[in-house]
Structures are given as structure tokens and as C-alpha cells.
Computed example of a mutant assay.
Amino acid sequence: MAGNTSTPGATVTSRALALLGAFDERHPRLTLTQLAERAGLPVPTAHRLIGELVAWGALSRTETGCYVVGRRLWDLGLLAPVQTGLRELASPYLHDLYGATLATVHLSVRDGLDVLYLDRLAGHASVPVVSSVGSRLPLHATGVGKVLLAHAPPEVQQAVLADLTRITPYTITQPGLLRRQLARVLREGHATTSEEMSLGACSLAVPIRRGPDVVAALGIVVPSLKDRSKLLGALQVAAHGVGRELARTLPPSGISG
């Protein structure tokens, strides 16, 4: 269940937000009953609020009777500073990186204890991955996530290290080993993964800096890291270009969520 707002005193706003918060990557489509259950609401209350959300465009009803997130929320999300600033500035460099590597390219930021994927480029020759624009994945199992985790505050690192979920047989779930990897990320300036998030996929990622601060991560996903030096060079050039643009044109508030 996503949350429980059936307690006395819950506002209409909190109930509506609970319904929207019921959706996630594993639950992109929900029936009325499922929505009510995950939001912790009585079905009649959920039905009434869902009707208002559909009318406003926050939710849409499919032909099968399920509900999905509506286009209007997507339109609003594109107005968030993290989208309109960083994503737009980085776009030319992402396309250059994709053209040079033909790999899946990711632009990501940290959102709490997860990686938030702001942009993704992929082609027919790219390795299949589970990420999509707007999706969130674990910090400890992704290349971009390890970069962001290495530069995260101590309390964030502690929270992640306390709950290392195994996603594939190769996911790092030993806190000591991950700590050593994060220390190496800080020393070497890049992170790697090998089938830790998806079988058959390796990743390489570097930080994007605005001055001394790491504000995002840029990564690629490939079948193997045998050409690591070439791929790393292309990543570093692209990340440096994005960082230069950020320092030149975007104030600090324009890259925060």
C-alpha cells in the first residue's frame, strides 16, 4: 500500500495526492479498487476524487477501465527547473555522446535515495535497459547512481548502505565492498557496474559539476567495458561541456528539484 490517509483530519488535498502517489514504476496502471487500497481510501471516496482528477487531466481512464497518469501532470513536470534547465542545456552533449558511442546515454540526478533519470537516448544497437525518462532506480546498482552516491551527504550514504537490495546475482550488497567502490569513484572520477542492474549490461558514469559541486551524473550502458578508456574520454568531454554551460548560464536554483 502506498500510504494511508483514511485517518480523521486527512485533507482533500492529501487524499488526492495519495491517489497520485499510488502510481510507480511497478504500478503504472491501476483499477479503482487498487487505487483505493494503495492510497488507503474507501472506494467511494477514491471514486469521487478520481473523477475530479480525470476531469482536470491529472489521470486518464483507459479502455480497459484502468487509470494511468494523465498528460497534464507530464506537462507540469516539464516546467520543473531540473527539467527546463539542466536537461535542455545537456541535450546537445547527450546527442554528441550518443553519436560517438551508439550506447544508451543517461542524464541523472539524485532524488532522495534513488537515481532520477532526466533524459535517455538509445538506438537499435543499444543494450536493452530498464531505465526510462522520469524513472527512479537504486543508487547502489547503477553507474550514475554510484557517482551520485559517492558525492552524497554521509546520511544519504548510510541510509543506502543499510538497505542494499539484490536486483541481479551481480548486484553489490556488501556494505564494505560498496564503500570501497565509492572511495574509488572519488579517487578516479568515474564509476562502473557490471550486470548489477540488468543482465548483459555494463555501465560507465562520470559526475557533472557546476564549479566544485556535483549536480548530476552522465552515464552510458554498453555490453562490455573493453573499450573503457575510449568511452570514458567521450563521457568526460560531454560532462565537462555540460558543466561549463551550467556555470555560464544557469543559477544554482535552476538545477535543483
Rank of each mutant, 00 (worst) to 15 (best):
G3W: 01
N4T: 09
G9N: 10
A10H: 10
S14C: 03
R15H: 01
A16L: 10
A16N: 04
A18S: 12
A18P: 02
L19G: 03
D24C: 01
R26K: 10
H27I: 02
R29M: 14
T31E: 11
L32K: 06
L32F: 02
L35M: 13
A36P: 07
E37Y: 13
A39Q: 05
A39C: 07
L41Y: 05
P42Q: 09
V43G: 00
T45A: 14
R48D: 08
L53R: 03
A58F: 10
L59F: 15
R61L: 15
T62P: 06
T64E: 15
Y67D: 12
G70L: 09
D75G: 07
D75A: 15
L79C: 05
G85K: 03
G85M: 04
R87K: 15
E88T: 15
E88F: 11
L89H: 12
A90C: 07
S91Y: 12
S91C: 07
P92R: 07
A100I: 04
A100H: 13
A103P: 00
T104M: 09
T104P: 03
L107Q: 08
L107T: 07
V109K: 10
D111N: 05
L113A: 06
Y117I: 07
G123C: 07
H124W: 02
A125G: 07
S126L: 06
V127E: 09
P128E: 03
V129N: 05
V130K: 12
V133D: 00
S135D: 08
S135Y: 03
R136M: 07
P138H: 09
L139V: 07
T142K: 01
G143T: 03
V144R: 01
L148R: 04
L149M: 05
L149F: 04
A150V: 05
H151D: 01
P153M: 07
E155S: 10
L164S: 13
R166K: 15
T171F: 13
Q174L: 12
P175A: 13
L177W: 06
L177D: 12
L178A: 09
R179K: 14
L182K: 00
V185T: 02
G189R: 02
H190C: 06
A191I: 03
A191G: 05
T193S: 05
M197N: 11
L199V: 15
L204W: 09
L204G: 14
V206Y: 12
D213C: 02
V214A: 09
L218C: 09
G219Y: 03
I220G: 09
V221R: 04
P223N: 08
P223L: 08
P223E: 08
S224G: 05
S224Q: 09
D227C: 08
S229C: 00
S229T: 08
K230D: 11
L231S: 10
L231H: 14
L232W: 05
G233I: 00
A234W: 08
L235M: 10
A238L: 11
H240S: 14
G243K: 12
G243S: 13
R244F: 06
E245R: 15
E245L: 13
P251T: 12
S253M: 05
